[in-house]
Each structure stands twice: as C-alpha cells, then as structure tokens.
C-alpha cells in the first residue's frame, strides 16, 4: 500500500511528497523499514527497493510482519540530481531528528522519524558519492556496535566498519533512530549517480536473510550469504592525492594490495607529465577507489583495509 508520510506545497502547482510502500504480511514478526535517497545523488538503493518491492508483494504469504520501503527521503534531490535538499544548504542527513515547526527540511525529517520510530529494524542504504566506488559495507558507530554488528553480518556485504563516534554524526537519521531503539544499520556501496546491479542483488539477498533470521520472512534466500570482515577505525588507511590533476587508477576495489603496489597515477594532460604516483603504504584490501578522475590536492583516492 502506497502511503504519503509527508507533504508540503511547492510554489507553483506541485507538492513535495515523501512516500512509502507498506507491505504487510501475517501478524507478528516485527517491522523492518528500508530507507534510501537521503542524498539525491545516491541511487544504489533504488534497485534494492525495487527488488524488495517486487519480490515481497509476490511472496506476501511468506511475510510475518511489516516491511516499509521508503525509496526517496529526498525526492526533490533525486529528481534533480541534487545531493542535498534543494533550497537548503544543510545536508539532509545532518538535520535529524528534525523539528515540527522549524523549517521545511526539519519538518520533513521530523515526520520521517515519527513514521519509522516504532519499527524494530531499519536499513539506511547509501551509495558513495559521485567521486568514490565502495565495496558493500555497513558503517556502525562504535557506541552501537554491540547491538548491531550481529545483524550487519547477515546482510551479505564485504565489510562492517565500526567507526568512532563524532558529535556531528548525532544529527544523522541512523543515530536518531538508534537512540529511539530502532536497530538501524547504514549500508554504503557502489558509486553515486549509478546503479551497480551485482551489489543491489547481494544486498537484496542480505536483507531477506536478515528478515528470515529475525522471523519476518519464512521463504528461501537466493545465493550464499558472505560473512563480512569486521574492521575498526584504526584498521582503515586513507590515501589522498598529493597533487592536483587527472587520476588514472591501476587497481580495482576488491583487489588485494601488497605494500608498494601502485594504486594509480595523477597526470597532467597538458604537459604529459606524471605528477604523482599513489602507492599502498601497507598491504590490505582496496575497499574504496576514486571514481571521478579530476582531483585536487587532498582528494581521497583510496581506502585500504589493513591486513
């Protein structure tokens, strides 16, 4: 059943609508919310929502509980290739839990929280931005690791990255929901503005697996579920651009690197010079690689999960 959870008028003959598809099976079994599209340039979650929506409605007899699918928390952003909430400077994932009468974006955030807060679980799907490609991974604040890692392990992803807490992250959707008792896992995968079908299918299988393990789904799960590596904040090394120029990668994400391996080169098309060679400073798994070629000094080129 399609429901509108937030509506607000736009200046000329249009409304902003945030909608969900609420799929209800037999009684019991709890409630899972799958949310995505907070950042309008992150589209990987679109495919997952489609797969879930299509499959679950076809297999309604195997569902015990409710699955609410929110494919576009920032519909104006998605429809206009805008990362943020058009018209407002703030990242939409920095305004939760919102407030009822503060601003349009705060009102939307408030209603989103209000609609999800009675759920047992939430999966908040992000792609990377347009600049980076990421292996499928869950990102979990260290303060919630004890309660969430075991569920993240069910999601058929490659990594669970347990990161340090930061005050600024207290305004994310995931932090607000976890504070309200909704077990919420952030998944990052793929790249901005694109869909990586392989990852979408993997996460779809993973979400079914989680649903099966917590009693919301009684059917089969396609494919083997991979067990992710658990990584803490110190276990990830960052490689940033030393020069501004054009980055030409020589490795793909998912590659294993030895110390000294060349990850890519920064070149000048004008002069033909190689300006910088980015190398792995320690062996490990290439979990992130630069997707957008133009770089400034400091641009993130790669992340490596240390061996």
């Amino acid at each position: 059943m399609i429901q509108t959870i937030f509506s607000a008028g736009l200046p000329v003959d249009e409304k902003l609508l945030i909608q969900k598809n609420s799929i209800r099976g037999h009684g019991g079994g709890g409630r899972l919310c799958v949310v995505t599209g907070t950042h309008g340039d992150e589209l990987e979650g679109q495919y997952v929502c489609y797969l879930l929506s299509e499959f679950l409605q076809r297999n309604i007899d195997k569902i015990h509980g409710t699955i609410d699918i929110y494919p576009a928390l920032n519909p104006l952003g998605i429809d206009s290739i805008t990362r943020g909430f058009p018209g407002f400077d703030l990242d939409m994932n920095r305004i939760f839990p919102g407030a009822e009468n503060k601003s349009l974006s705060d009102s939307a955030a408030f209603q989103i929280i209000d609609d999800i807060k009675s759920a047992d679980f939430a999966i908040d799907i992000h792609a990377s931005n347009i600049f980076l490609r990421e292996l499928p991974q869950a990102r979990i604040n260290v303060n919630t690791a004890d309660s969430l890692v075991r569920y993240a392990e069910m999601l058929n992803i490659d990594l669970v990255w347990v990161h340090p807490a930061a005050t600024v992250l207290e305004s994310t959707l995931a932090h607000s929901l976890n504070s309200l008792g909704v077990k919420t896992i952030v998944v990052e995968m793929g790249v901005g503005m694109r869909i990586t079908p392989e990852y979408g299918v993997r996460l779809f299988d993973g979400i079914l697996n989680l649903m099966k393990n917590v009693g919301i789904y009684t059917g089969e799960v396609g494919g083997a579920i991979s067990k992710p590596r658990i990584v803490d904040g110190d276990g990830v090394a960052f490689v940033n651009a030393e020069k501004s120029g054009v980055f030409l990668p020589e490795k793909s994400y998912g590659n294993h690197l030895d110390e000294g391996d060349v990850i890519g080169r920064i070149v000048s098309p004008l002069t033909g010079a190689t300006l910088s060679v980015a190398k792995a400073l320690q062996p490990g798994l290439l979990m992130t690689i630069r997707a957008y070629p133009i770089v400034y000094e400091g641009s993130l080129l790669a992340r490596i999960v240390k061996d």
């Binding site: 607000a8 008028g9 200046p11 000329v12 902003l16 018209g87 503060k102 601003s103 349009l104 009102s107």
Partner: peptide, 8 residues
C-alpha cells in the same frame, strides 16, 4: 520571491 510551504 517564492516560498515553499512550512518554510521559515
């Protein structure tokens, strides 16, 4: 000159 509903 234009305003959305619920905007401050």
């Amino acid at each position: 000159p234009l305003i959305m509903e619920k905007t401050v």
